[in-house]
Design a protein around this nucleic acid. Sequence first.
DNA 1: CTCTCCCT
Length: 818
Amino acid sequence: MPLLAMSTLPIEQHLKPIQTALSEHNRLILVAQPGAGKTTRVPLTLLNSQWAQGQKILLLEPRRVAARLAASFMAAQLNEPIGKTVGYRMRGDSKVSSDTRLEVLTQGVLTRMLQDDPLLEGVAGIIFDEFHERSIEADLGLALSLDIQQSVRDDLRLVVMSATLDVAALTNVLGRDTCVIESTGREFPIDTYHRPLGGDETLDAAAYRVVTEALANVDSRDVLVILPGVAEITRLVQMLENSAFDVEVRALHGGMSIEAQQAALRLHETRQRVIVATAIAESSVTVDGVNVVIDAGLERVPLFQPQTGLTRLTTRRVNRASADQRRGRAGRQQPGTCYRLWSQEQPMVAYGEPEIAQADLSRLALEVARWGARSPEELVWMTPPPNGAWQSSQALLRQLGILDTVGLLTPLGKQSARWPLEPRLAVMLSKAASLNAVPLACALAALLEGRERVSGSLRDALAQRLGQSRRFPQWQRETQRLMDMASLKLPDKLPLEPLSCLLAIAYPDRVGQFISPGRFKLANGKTATLSASHLLANEAFIVAVSVESASSEAAIYLAEPIMQTALIDLYPETQQWEERVTWSDAQGKLLGEAVQRHGELVLARRPLAELSREAVQQALLSALKQRPAALFNGKVKQLRGRMALVASLYSDVWPDWSESALLDSLDVWLAPYMTGITRFSQLEKMPFHSYLMATLSWDEQSHFERLTPPSIMAPSGNQASVDYEPCLTGRPPVLALKLQEAFGWQDTPTVADGHMPVVIHLLSPAKRPLQVTQDLRSFWVNGYPEVRKEMRGRYPKHPWPEDPMTAQATASTKRHKV
DNA sequence: CTCTCCCT
């Protein structure tokens, strides 16, 4: 990288304002484009501030390479070796001394420093560089830093630096009076051309077409092609190598070893390079010599699915900030060209979703609990963790034994938090000691956490590494680091035996039980498949380690077989034989069995000869809850309607007889009558309404009967029953009777001590409804003459008197009277 | 049959 003279850096003019701002405020947002010099100039300037005297400043970088580079550049500025005034600190590597006042950290180190010393003593300020990348770790670091600044360290300076940033959103979090300083960038001009895919053109073909166009341009130096994934990269590399172009074709993606990546980045002495890369080239590595970028405009990202706890890869369009960042790669050293494989009209969102909005949050949930917060609301977030993913992560942590029911860390959780691993693997290491398998657990964690792709058998992959560790330097370094933390040395020979047990500790929710060849039911209830020819396709139990959620069923990429007995030993809760009595519709009776359960899986079962009274009762009650229609029969509906009416008129002491309340209290009001009941057919014939009445005292019962009489005597002398079911929906009760029976009633009859007139359904002799009224007097006067005229002809044998209010009521025809 | 990055 050509070093620009200090005075020419665009950031230079802002240094004084930055210093002034931070002498008065404790929060600052600095927006500066790449090449502005902010990463190296700002920290060194702040080091001389009054407020920083005798204290440290921390500079956060998203990547190790960036952290080392920034530290060495600044140390060189001071003519000092790294580790004197300027040092760095990252996983497994640090160069700091007692003289160090500026520490360049990778983000995870800050989290750990904060957790270990929540006062952050001796630190005057924290600078978050490249904050626009919005990693979970950076978001968490900022949330925790804001928390201590607000509670105990109002002297702590926080600076958020970024190339492109949603300033409005960040200002919302940091507060209105946060200083915002913007600096322009320093970039060579870049010509942008849009080259969308043709009608039925594939991405491969379009990429090849545009590479051809770029290579034909005499101004082109090395060409960087950015594609969404390894598959696309492999295909394009193949096409270019088979072509007539005299170019050096190189693939570049994160699945490659560091050594292979460095080889791909090396300039070629004579040949023009075409580097075909994933989004790794967007920000993680700098590709020198490039002045042409061809951007497919796509990215492949993992989306966490809270319902299944699995992550799914999806390909989608990049946002404008990413696209501009990619284009910028063409203009770092000279004027350049960018070809975009989409049309200029295609809409783009300004910013991408931050990682916290779409990733697995289990490590975040662990850190928040370790901080002592029981919910994310106790902290301030730029983007709060989404509720679904949060709940799902908390459920996993509880299942792993890390989190207690209140939401704080258990002793196992505290122990596990110290391992720099995802929670599953951290718990595995914490528990490995009891299996006498810490070295194996370290080797396994290094393998699973690492970025080397393991395919085929996990056991073979591990055996291979243990046998020839020198061939796998990254894995070996990681394993050794974990072993150092455990104060152990990796032995020469290591038995692989408790391998599947270790996996079952880390992935309890992904234990799978055989359904049919290649298909397994997972403990989380989801069905997952192995390819049918897979070696493990016929195992009774497996632990699925790597699972990708697909649209229908999940796909298992990596699994190990496990013995059923091992599962029962591992999960203490399964050792309880759980009595389970279920109602079988097919057999028409209760079936009893004792089961050993793990999640949704039944590991073992045996039939129960005798069913306990309690179990039978519970089974019947739960069967009743499944079929509530059997409970809420006509009589119960009437009773509930009467109670609904009474409760609406007299709010005082009447009980809640809603369906949900009654179902929830079956144990109280129904169970006492169930002695000797063993079948559903007996249960559904029980007089539920009597039991409900019996829950009322004698006084209440007689009051209730008086307020809501089941029937009212009509003038004819007949008892007409009152239908209280409408009261369940807030309507008045209904009294249905033949019109002739109502003769002599001057006014509408009432219930509830005269407070509630009933709705009268007056019926024809054929019991067809003639009139519905709640005002009988008005009907006799206004409606009846018309009805009489019409009905007299049709029912001549029935009486149709002219004055119904005084006429003799009757239930029968004229003949009897005559 | 799969993105990327990071951790006393």
